[in-house]
Amino acid sequence: MTIQEEQQEIIADFEYLLNWDDKYEYIIQLGKELPLIDSRYKTEDNLIRGCQSRVWLHADFLDGKLSFTADSDAIITKGLVSLVIKVLSGHTPKEIVDAEITFIEAIGLSSHLSPTRSNGLLSMLKQIKLYALAYQAKSVHS
């Protein structure tokens, strides 16, 4: 699936969840499916500091594709992180750099992207783009 298709699928899934509590229950459930970061990568270097909750992120580059593992100390953030990784993992650096992440807003959780909230999700998205840019630059030069 393309990044766009992955996002469409998530948006469609959430359309069935009419109440906010159902939505959150689902997000929390997704948090449990997050590909957890190996404890040896759960370091200060891989810590993305939000003011409120913390996110750890690790990137692997294999066969031209990036994949991510992560963790967060807040369970709602963890659920959203899990969704972001589901959407972006397994794609090429170029696809990730070019991707526009629209699903978070579409499922009604845009407050998590507000810089005032600074809960780590926004910084994590930026970090993923930075990794992708770095690998894209590398593959162009090599």
């Binding site: 906010w20 959150y24 409120q52 909750s53 100390d73 807040a74 369970i75 709602i76 953030t77 809960n119």
Partner: peptide, 13 residues
């Protein structure tokens, strides 16, 4: 062991 941020968000809702 609920993170305060999670609790605050569900209270907000």
């Amino acid at each position: 062991d609920i993170h305060p941020f999670d609790l605050g968000e569900i209270l907000d809702k």
